[in-house]
Design a binder for these strands. Structure first.
Lengths: 248, 248
DNA sequence: TCACATTTGTCCGTATGTATC
DNA sequence: AGATACATACGGACAAATGTG
């Protein structure tokens, strides 16, 4: 595959690098369904032998497959490459990178969140399943538990919004929120977090959740807007301007 | 970095692989803005020397950076790693993979688009700038030009929605749409495209645009919904169910 | 607890392909 | 066309991690 096979007919074709071909080959097997999550691949050395390439080439191919979310590498005895499906995580980090690179402002982030989460809530009003209700209420309980121990419920409060998106059963929303929330958290972590602000957030979450469960549409959306605008205070997010009018 | 530095204090911490650390290091420089697109990095060997790691390690790090859209490798004399920004392509292929693996359906994609584009339009009603109006109208003109030559206006019709998002001045929307639209295009290209369908799309775009320019909110959103549902026909997107009710 | 086998992680040396001057 | 500088790919070696007896 290195010095051999100079194929005169297609000399003009951009010759893909060997590791890319190896990666594409395995990726196609996964996309085709021949390799399903849980499947165990032979060790690097064996794959290299079978494909007639060097071990380094196989390793670089696996770097691509790992980052794409198709493969996980386990070290040690009984280890090796395992087919997984973490493409949605890949998608989240890619979006995270894209948003970070564009240097979006907190205001843009808040506006985007508002649009997405309003969309999420509108769907939840029609089809919020009991299991989701349970998960969301558990989140509130855990948050209150932390507060009772005088600890801020930072992670729980982030997780609440991701759980909300998950309940919509739309992976695009889930991925978007999973990409956006860490950036929001990064912004928010720069100002002092008191227990009382953390408590206010949990209270707001609970109000939103109960309004959604009861199907009170206007109230749930109003609470959501108030909540996000409250968070935006001090970050240049206008709190007075009506950001989105519900009725024209 | 290999046999040295056994750091007894934090022995339990999951030690990241060296190539991951190298990748994360360079990535952070890009995200921080220290390295901007166009910047040329030293050759592999030099980087390896400077960081005190092997060349293969640097190579594997660059595989990650390449796939993430931060770096491009140029071969030959005067080549080497160059900082680029193709993160959005990465994002699109990741989304494409997710769709192919059926982790995201066309219906989810359409619903997400609807939510985002409705949010975009609501903002445009308040602050659509003349330059954006010009750009969008030019898009329509170009599309009609192609149709007049009996050519489908495929690219223009995709571009319309991205221009719409750009006009919102919210990078999160732009990034999202630029990730979604290539996938939509891929779906739609699988069914036969006639000139008349292409013309219908341009007509719909023009109607939406003029409604937005005139500030006719209900009409612009209604037209958008109709347009997207029309596109979704034959892909499992329900066209009768009210996907989002505007008033409760 | 202690070897031991397996597999990835990392390094080095070398040769070849490739683009530029 | 030849020289140069770089990535690409190979092979071999050892370290580190991980599971097993």
């Amino acid at each position: 595959m290195k010095q051999a096979d100079s194929w005169p007919l297609f000399e003009t074709m951009k010759r893909k690098r060997t590791f890319e071909e190896v990666s594409a080959h395995i990726k196609s097997l996964v996309l085709k369904g021949s390799l399903k999550p849980g499947a165990k691949l032979p060790p690097e050395a064996e794959i290299a032998r079978q494909l007639g390439v060097g071990r380094q080439t196989v390793r670089e191919a696996f770097r691509l497959l790992e980052l794409s979310g198709f493969v996980r590498i386990k070290r040690g005895l009984g280890g090796g490459p395992i087919i997984v499906d973490t493409v949605l995580d890949t998608l989240s980090t890619a979006l995270h990178d894209a948003v970070t690179l564009q240097r979006v402002s907190f205001e843009e982030l808040t506006n985007a969140r508002l649009v997405v989460e309003k969309g999420v809530i509108e769907r939840l009003l029609q089809k919020l399943e009991p299991s989701d209700t349970t998960r969301l209420r558990e989140n509130i309980v855990q948050a209150r538990g932390k507060l009772a121990m005088n600890l801020p419920a930072f992670e729980e409060n982030i997780q609440f919004h991701i759980l909300l998106a998950s309940a919509s059963r739309n992976q695009v929303f889930v991925v978007t929120m999973r990409a956006i929330m860490p950036i929001m958290a990064d912004f928010l972590s720069r100002r002092k977090q008191t227990l009382s602000t953390s408590k206010k957030v949990v209270d707001a979450h609970e109000e939103i959740l109960e309004a959604v469960i009861d199907g009170r549409k206007e109230e749930s959306i109003k609470k959501l807007e108030e909540h996000l605008l409250e968070l935006g205070k001090g970050f240049g997010v206008p709190s007075k301007r009506r950001m989105t009018k519900q009725q024209g």
